[in-house]
């Protein structure tokens, strides 16, 4: 309870410093593995944005946007993992990746691993840097519902 109250305080006394600095931006990437000792090779971006969207889709997302909001939560967890690593942030990211994989029919005996690649601007160039790689987990052992 005390921790929840501590988490509530920034809402009751807000800083309102939205977008004051554009920080390095995390991308969550994952790879499927046959066993936990395999070196991940084929990294895939978790929920890449579509190339475009219609005005109708844009209007619909005003009232129904669960997947995007969940993706933003995953980004928050990725940022938290960098600031203050916790099992909670890692669990939440794994749960979302595994849930998508289970929905798409991935073999639950497979293992998955994710990494956080940060995109940053250096002068006029964009650089990508992997700053975190999680220990692989078996899909079947992750709560996906």
């Amino acid at each position: 309870m005390l921790q929840a109250i501590r988490l509530l305080m920034p809402a009751l006394i807000p800083a309102w410093n939205f977008f004051d600095v554009i920080a390095d931006s995390p991308r969550v990437e994952f790879a499927l593995l046959a066993d936990p000792d395999e070196t991940p090779q084929a990294w895939q971006v978790f929920r890449p944005p579509p190339p475009g969207q219609s005005l109708g889709a844009m209007a619909r997302r005003l009232v129904w946007n669960p997947v995007w909001n969940e993706t933003l939560f995953v980004v928050s967890c990725a940022e938290r993992l960098m600031r203050q690593p916790t099992a909670h942030s890692e669990d939440e990211i794994y749960a979302r990746i595994a849930a998508d994989l289970v929905r798409s029919g991935t073999n639950p005996k497979d293992w998955i691993c994710f990494r956080l690649v940060f995109v940053a601007r250096q002068g006029e160039d964009l650089i990508r840097e992997t700053r975190f790689q999680a220990v692989p987990r078996r899909v079947a052992e992750i709560v996906t519902r």
């Binding site: 554009i22 944005p49 579509p50 933003l72 980004v75 940053a120 964009l126």
Partner: peptide, 17 residues
């Protein structure tokens, strides 16, 4: 520059376009 960064590489733009 900051808003360019938001569009160019932040996670927020909902489409690549």
């Amino acid at each position: 520059r900051a808003l360019r960064d938001v569009f160019q590489f932040s996670t927020y733009p909902v489409t690549e376009d």
